[in-house]
Design a protein around this nucleic acid. Structure first.
Lengths: 337, 337
DNA sequence: ACGAAAAATGACAACGTTGTCAAACGACTT
DNA sequence: AAGTCGTTTGACAACGTTGTCATTTTTCGT
């Protein structure tokens, strides 16, 4: 119901009886503004429904207000979770969220990163696995003095913001879930070794086995690569072996789907003959038949916090905390009820 | 190897011996610049590696250089195809690509559109199904005078750019593919009725049946909703019926996957006992086991052209052509070889 | 209560582009 | 050759913000 005219800092300044510059300072969280004026300005701005003009800001400050998420993960579910979280946090603070694929297939992928960073001015970077483990990439970003936030890094970096779940504990939790349901012969389908999180999940798997006094020789470890096909292949390996496993822990949902399809083909029933659990709680895990029990991480929340802290860092030029851990939850569904 | 300093129009103007304004005109494809000067300026700019400053452009021209894609389609594969196409076309012309979900679940989704359009200045809009069929949405955009491009609209709009495939012919082509492989008893699993393209595919299906002299009563038509689950349910309906169909045409890949999984569960073999074909050629169609024969449309190319034409329209304020049809291709895979 | 130092504030010039409008130029007509 | 009209060009002021630096106000130690 407000008038359409675009408000400027000028309008706010007049209404509040302060100078333009003071208003500017308030909106940039600059120090050296009396709290009383800060509140006054903020109040007036809210009343009038003022929104800063980003272009003008960019032009005058030579900052871009662009945060970029570099990824190389074909899982669209995960990506859009991150993107949504980023976007929400960005719009709170007048930043732009951009996502850019940095394919490690591409031989010159480091070059294309450098290209990107020199071409487009970028105020902050968010990396997700497996790139959050790429030291060369992180070094280049650091060298340019660009604040950087890592999502689920294998090793936490002191010079970055780290946002993560405890992968090992999650892996252990999932394994214990299987054990509690009476499964004593288990298989673990791993992901790619370049994906540190995957090894940590596996460590959790073995730690649960040990803690519950199960025998290592009753367990199978099959190497996968996160693809549906590798889950399919994993089941075939399982079927050939002497060990009769009744519970399968797949390193992600896609491999879980592959495993289930392969099992169905041989006439086995899920979960009656074999139980399968996944990891990531993707949309396909929910819509598969049977729906797949999977470990959910609050990826959108993680991305949101990651972005907020990154923006704080950019705005204030200092980091208070580095590390933020998030809880996980097992979504119990029919594939292992 | 160039110096790092950011070039401005000023630099180009000096080097070329013309005024700042003339350079500006050249970069905006404004009329009334002598061809000779135009070439000169363009040449100098290329030599120096000049790139216009978008923020300054936005500020001075009050345009946003933002194109927005409104979607409400959970298929990430399709979406990222569109996004990639948009992005490429945008970066050619210095525009920004933004994607925004406009959920029809949300009761007030038209409001959120209006909100968006009034909040953020937007120079052009791209709509994909099912939103490209929403007259109310299109009307609101038109009312604001924002150029609009539709991807695969059910009915082509004269005031918009339309980019599409011939859905009916595609449906017919796919059906004939099944018929040529000896299937005479077929099932068609439809998508949501709100999705006009789906009905057109179905029309193609029936036209092929008729053209090949097959009997309508040997055919089954099952209503689905594009979800994996509905594909699953469709197979169960199929199994219950008396008609023994050997070929299934699913309205999209997800329903094809559901159908296949359901078939596998009953011990049937695909494609030996039943052949299934899908539509869209999504990543899951490729990585499913068996991989699914599916109809591919060049969605990325379509989005790219759509975007280019939209930008032309914005820049020149006129549209030469409205309609652009693209070819399709059947990707033959194991689910119906 | 006084001065010195620190904190808060403001005036004004950037930032790199486009819009406006007036001036210069060219091609015609007479 | 002068006059007319359309085309091409350019000077200069926006656009809405931040950076710089000078000025004012507050705080604090004595």
């Amino acid at each position: 119901m407000n008038d359409e005219k675009n408000l400027t800092i000028q309008d706010i300044a007049e209404k509040a009886g302060v100078s333009i510059k003071t208003v500017s300072r308030v909106f940039n969280n600059s120090p050296n503004v009396r709290q009383q004026k800060r509140d006054l300005v903020l109040g007036v701005a809210r009343d009038l429904g003022y929104r800063p003009n980003i272009s003008a800001r960019q032009l005058a400050s030579k900052r871009s207000f662009v945060l970029i998420h570099f990824y190389d993960n074909p899982n669209m579910d995960y990506l859009s979770g991150i993107y949504d979280g980023m976007r929400e946090a960005c719009s709170e603070k007048g930043y732009y969220a951009v996502a850019e694929r940095l394919s490690s297939q591409n031989r010159s992928y480091k070059d294309s990163l450098l290209d990107y960073l020199t071409r487009t001015p970028v105020d902050g970077v968010i990396l997700s696995p497996p790139i959050s483990d790429d030291k060369a990439v992180i070094r280049e970003i650091e060298k340019r003095g660009i604040p950087c936030s890592l999502i689920s890094p294998g090793i936490k970096k002191r010079h970055c913001i780290n946002v993560f779940i405890d992968e090992k504990t999650a892996g252990r939790k999932m394994t214990e879930f299987l054990i509690e349901r009476g499964h004593t012969k288990l298989a673990f389908i791993s992901g790619l070794d370049t994906h540190t999180a995957s090894s940590q999940r596996e460590a959790g798997f073995w730690s649960a086995i040990e803690a519950h006094g199960l025998k290592r020789k009753d367990m199978m470890r099959i190497g996968g690569d996160f693809s549906m096909q590798s889950g399919f292949a994993a089941f075939e390996a399982l079927a050939k072996s002497k060990t009769r496993v009744t519970g399968v822990f797949a390193g992600n949902d896609e491999m879980a789907i592959g495993t289930i399809i392969a099992a169905l083909r041989t006439g086995m029933k899920v979960p009656e003959d074999i139980s399968v659990v996944g990891f990531d709680d993707s949309a396909f895990a929910r819509s598969m038949w049977p729906p797949i029990t999977s470990l959910a991480q609050p990826i959108e929340e993680m991305a949101k916090l990651s972005t907020r802290k990154l923006i704080d860092w950019i705005d204030t030029k200092e980091r208070i905390e580095n590390d933020f851990e998030f809880p996980t939850e097992i979504m119990v569904r029919d594939s292992c009820p």
